Computed example of a mutant assay.
Amino acid sequence: MNRKTDFNFTPGVVGYPVLFILAIWIVFWIEVRFGVNFNYLGIFPRKLSGLLGIIFSPFIHSGIKHLFNNTIPLFVLSMALFYFYKSISWKVLGYGFLFTGFITWLIARPAYHIGASGIIYLLASFLFFKGIFSKYYRLVALSLMVVFLYGGLLWYVTPIDPEISWEGHLSGLIVGLFFAFIFKKNIAEPPKYIWEHPDYDEEEDDFMRHFDEHGNFIEKLPDEITEDEQEDKIEINYIYKEQKNKKD
């Protein structure tokens, strides 16, 4: 039995999320070690200088609790993205990075918005809706797992806590849903199984493809067969029938 599937585990499935998280922790270590504060590099809505935050804000966190709360879901969700949607993972992550930050820049309150929460909501939203749209049991199961693990995140797309950038969360949710529609055609195909009989002979099968069910040579149309090929056809046809008689 041969199995064909788009789901393949590669080093990047774990490696890329680890590198991303490592970069976030290094930035936080620099802040603590050298007593600096990078909050001014966050997204500040509707100011040109605040556009820099679209790139830098996901790497900046207000404290160890904020950083730890983002680390685990970011690792789990990004790993799922690279495993189940390898062909479009960088497009989702790269464009999502930019669009989530830009929407936050457009709609958020006038304050510095920092943290990787917007990316987490982007990934959770994309994985959930994409799996539902696929109607493929593995991806639907992934969607249900996302709901089970991170369904509580939905509360934080509303202004229930003034210290939380709910605008960034909402932006990620919107972009994830949008991408699930945009990349709707890039759904992994269900595994296909090819069953092979234990007595299957590939060479014999290739040889027999030149004949129809009655044992007649059909590699070329009659008007395309030359006299020499006609003689070869008769000889091959004879050999084939002799072999068939021996097997019977």
Rank of each mutant, 00 (worst) to 15 (best):
G172H: 06
S62M: 14
N8G: 10
D6S: 12
V146I: 14
K241N: 07
P17N: 03
G42Q: 00
P159S: 04
E189D: 13
D248P: 06
N2G: 08
D228Y: 14
S165L: 05
K4F: 14
F56C: 01
A108C: 07
S49G: 05
L149Q: 02
S117P: 00
T104S: 01
K244R: 10
E189W: 08
N2P: 14
A188H: 06
I236Q: 13
F178S: 04
K220C: 07
V27F: 08
K246C: 06
P17T: 06
I21D: 07
D212S: 06
L19Y: 05
K86T: 06
L170A: 09
I239N: 12
E231Y: 08
V13M: 08
K91S: 15
F75Y: 12
T71A: 02
I30R: 00
M145F: 14
G152A: 12
L48T: 14
M208L: 13
G172S: 08
Y238L: 15
N216F: 13
I107E: 00
K130G: 01
L122N: 05
S57R: 04
E235L: 10
M208F: 03
H66R: 04
M145R: 12
I88Y: 06
K247H: 08
S78E: 15
K220E: 13
D232F: 11
H61E: 12
T5D: 03
I55T: 08
G151E: 08
Y193R: 09
P162C: 07
H113G: 00
D223G: 03
W25C: 11
A23N: 05
W105Q: 05
F99Y: 11
P190H: 01
F211K: 00
I55W: 01
P58M: 02
V146P: 00
Y85W: 11
R209Q: 15
Y137T: 14
I24W: 07
L122F: 03
P17W: 03
Y16H: 02
K47V: 08
V32R: 15
L19S: 11
E231K: 15
A141Q: 08
A111N: 09
Y150G: 02
F99T: 05
H66N: 13
N69R: 14
H214Q: 13
L153Y: 05
H113A: 01
T10Y: 10
I21P: 11
R209K: 15
E235G: 01
F20M: 15
P45Q: 04
G12K: 00
L41A: 10
E167I: 01
Q230H: 08
F211E: 02
Y136I: 12
A188Q: 10
